[in-house]
Amino acid sequence: MGLSRNVSLSTALRYKGQGPFLTFILHRIGGLGMAIFIGIHILASFLSGDVGNAINAVYESWVFQLFIFFCVLFHAINGLRITIVDLWPKLIEHEREAIWLEWAVFIPVYAIAAFAIIRSALGG
């Protein structure tokens, strides 16, 4: 039996799920970003030669590095929260606090990495 969607796109875009929804959608974007990157990366190293080198040049762009590190770090930290809460279901009561804690870890670590990436991009 197929499910039918009765929510229009405009309604979906106006959904205000606050913190938990933001982590959900960023987790999804991060996972998709990594899956696409790693898939292409494996194929590029398999092909090597000109095609592989052309694809590898993309990874050296600092914009791409900022994006992929955001994907990896957010997906890893948020995934750890999901794992802990799901394996110990009683902790669901503290979900909001866990999300704040997650940002408290993510923001400084990402800021340091972003600083290092941008500094080396500027030639420092």
Binding site: R28, G31, L32, M34, A35
Partner: peptide
């Protein structure tokens, strides 16, 4: 990762 892609696809392909 592939299972993650399936979970995402299931939200759009019904």
């Amino acid at each position: 990762g592939v299972h993650g892609l399936v979970v995402i696809a299931d939200d759009y392909v019904t």
